[in-house]
Amino acid sequence: MRLTHWLSALALLILTMSGMQIFNAHAALYASDASDFAHPALAIGGGMDSRGDPKGFVQFGSRRISTTHVLGWGPNGYGEEGPRAFPAWATMPPQQDLANGRRWHIAFAWIFVLCGLTFAPWALRLWPSRADMRALPHALRTHLLPWKVAPSAQQNPLQKLTYFGLVFIVVPIAILSGLALAPAVDSWAHWLPAIFGGRQFARIWHFAAMITIIVFFVGHVVMVALTGLVNNMRSMITGWLVVPQSAAAGGVVRPSAADEPAAKVPALS
């Protein structure tokens, strides 16, 4: 599972970058089954303005936010800038290339799903128990200041709920809404695009799932860093985590606990 953790992290990176490549081919989302070209829910666009200056923007409904040089107008992968939704450094392949973006995306979708299956035994233990819900207010109070937390081999309720949301809500939405974009899948399962509000709406769900996963990723990395980068990385690579002895024994983790003699315990795997 440690191997598949890193492999799925790589798969998510490639899925995000190749997904942005695919999005660039038609940089607009519609809250419907077919596209209502005049009324996108979200669009990224760009070009020259009346003064001949490059402009890039993100459009939500009728509101436009200027994003020149990053979104809508930015690096095109040939050492210059041009009209382009997501910039070359964020897409895979960097240059505009829908065909190969699709190949990377579909290949790593398979790899991600196969890796995900190896997480099943761990994932089943994420189902929140009553004790978790009871412990939640306490966890909220203590964990909003993350630097007060010592490393622990146990998951706290907040962590558990976050992983639960990711594994049982966000990732299934990402996979199912992605499948709903495939006409051959839709002809087997008419209900699939329907549960997302239609095929174009499924693109919104797919996009939103990506954003949520990016937010999780940032939070995940910040948490790993704040709770002890070296120790956490060691546990993620070797499977062993160093924790204060009182925590290993199941005691309450206090900030001062970090001063106590350390013990090695198997990390969650």
Binding site: M17, G77, A88, W89, M92, P93, P94, Q95, D97, N100, R103, W104, I106, A107, A109, W110, A182, A184, V185, W188
Partner: peptide, 29 residues
Amino acid sequence: CSGFVTSLNDNATVRKALEVPERLNTALL
């Protein structure tokens, strides 16, 4: 990074590997 990703994308072996899931999809669907 972009240079690396481009060379990866242009690699013949990588291209061959990326066709495997396509065959899987075709077989399934």
